[in-house]
Amino acid sequence: MAGHIRVLPLDRDDSRRYLPWIVAVMVYLAAMTLAGAMATASMASRWQTGLTGALTVQLQPAAETQANDGRMEAVLSILRADAAVASAEPVDEEKMLGFIQPWLGRDGLTLDLPLPRLVDVRLHDRASVDLVDLAARLEAAAPGTSVDDHARWLTGILKLARVIRFIAFGTVALIAAAAITVLVFATRAALAVHKDGIALLHIMGARNRFIAREFQVAALAQGFRGGLIGLLTALATLVALGGAGLNTDIGILPQVTLTTLQWLVLAALPPAAGAVALITARLTVLSVLARLA
């Protein structure tokens, strides 16, 4: 007999019985969208970190292998003599084959394919290089050489990541708006179902906030329960996606990896769903009751 007494049997309403499942679907969609956006952001960040302060020098394949080797020595010599360069290492052939293997396969064909030679160049921290000047010097010493600082590619990737993040937040906002709309209608339906009980409570001297508390306690429990179901389902999906990504060797799809903070963002979804449900129910009930005589 002690403890909180639920005066209105809101959990038994048909209008609210399916609410946790609707919230679960919403939270699932929100979790997947956020996870996708955060994984993309992490990936872009990793690319940015990995490629900032790095250059790639490419030597076009020459007619004869011997000539190739001579040009490589000249290129390495110029690069290593530059004060801004921390290291300049040629990318070995096995690694090169690894890069193209996902597209061309590992068969005899690639052995006959004329491949460019690459040099991975790392610059000192905060060092800058005059790319035009460096490219000219390298071209003079080894014709068929080009220098790439990845800026163009990286700018495109970062722009794409920003767009994806913007779309994801917009999608989550739409999902939240849809969830709030459903909650408002469910609360209004429950108010109609329990109008006799509410009228009785009013006659007995219940304040609107007492009645609103009935609804918000039920909404908090249902929202949190639905959010938990949605999050657990999303986590299962993410784990399955991670497993699928690990099992494939095509190397095109980025691996879904999230930071601790990003996992915490996902973990906050059920409480957030509960809080949104609580606030929506409270405001809806108070708004409807305020219009009553």
């Binding site: 007999m1 007494i5 005066v7 049997p9 038994r12 006799d196 009980g197 009785l200 009013h202 006659i203 007995m204 001297g205 219940a206 304040r207």
Partner: peptide, 25 residues
């Protein structure tokens, strides 16, 4: 109004009890 109503006790002809609450509650 709630404070005013709390000073009034009402017995309804059809009782109007909350069926899911015990007699005590």
């Amino acid at each position: 109004l709630p404070a005013l109503r709390q000073r009034i006790g009402v017995v309804f002809q059809d009782f109007r009890l909350f069926d899911h609450l015990s007699a005590f509650d």
